[in-house]
């Protein structure tokens, strides 16, 4: 059975501790587990660390890699910074949007893939680049990018 946000937070707290210092790490664990930070998780982190729900939400909304909306099983982050743009990331983005049938910032209706653009991924020597979940892909063309995304189940 899938874990509830409360369970995920409680288990993570055994590793990170329960002090206010742990707020970000707890949120990272939640985000890893669910792909986003649900409200119940914010409440759970708030309870466990003694910080207010607004404080926890403030932390969650500060960081780009923590999402407040539910997302797909796979997260594709295409770099949109200058070096990648110069090497054709806009074309890659158009191709991916067409392939997935969604605009950047959205999730496919079947919940399979979320497509996002992101600040520099630090792969500028191999532009254009994207991060699929935790795996980097670089030297993309519209075709190779679509092929990678098609392979995501």
């Amino acid at each position: 059975m899938a874990k509830t946000p409360e369970q995920v937070v409680a288990e993570a707290a055994d590793r990170t501790g329960r002090s206010p210092d742990s707020v970000l790490r707890l949120l990272q664990e939640v985000n890893r587990e669910f792909g986003y930070v649900p409200h119940e998780a914010i409440r759970a982190v708030s309870r466990i660390t003694g910080k207010s729900a607004a404080h926890v939400r403030g932390v969650a909304t500060f960081y780009s890699f923590l999402s407040s909306k539910p997302r797909g099983r796979h997260i594709v982050r295409l770099c949109s910074t200058v070096s990648c743009e110069m090497k054709g990331s806009s074309e890659v983005l158009k191709a991916l949007e067409k392939e997935l049938g969604i605009c950047a910032g959205n999730t496919t209706p079947d919940g399979r893939v979320t497509l996002e653009t992101t600040s520099c991924l630090g792969l500028c020597d191999k532009s254009p680049a994207m991060l699929v979940n935790d795996v980097p892909y670089s030297g993309l063309t519209p075709e190779t990018a679509c092929e990678i995304v098609r392979g995501l189940r």
Binding site: H39, R43, A53, A54, H55, R57, G58
Partner: peptide, 27 residues
């Protein structure tokens, strides 16, 4: 000594929030 409200979001979207969705869902 309550620490109920906090800053949320980033950059130009920064605002003050009392709760998760709205002020009334806070303490």
């Amino acid at each position: 000594g309550k620490g109920v409200i906090a800053a949320v979001n980033r950059s130009r979207d920064v605002s003050v929030s009392g709760g998760i969705v709205e002020w009334s869902d806070s303490k």
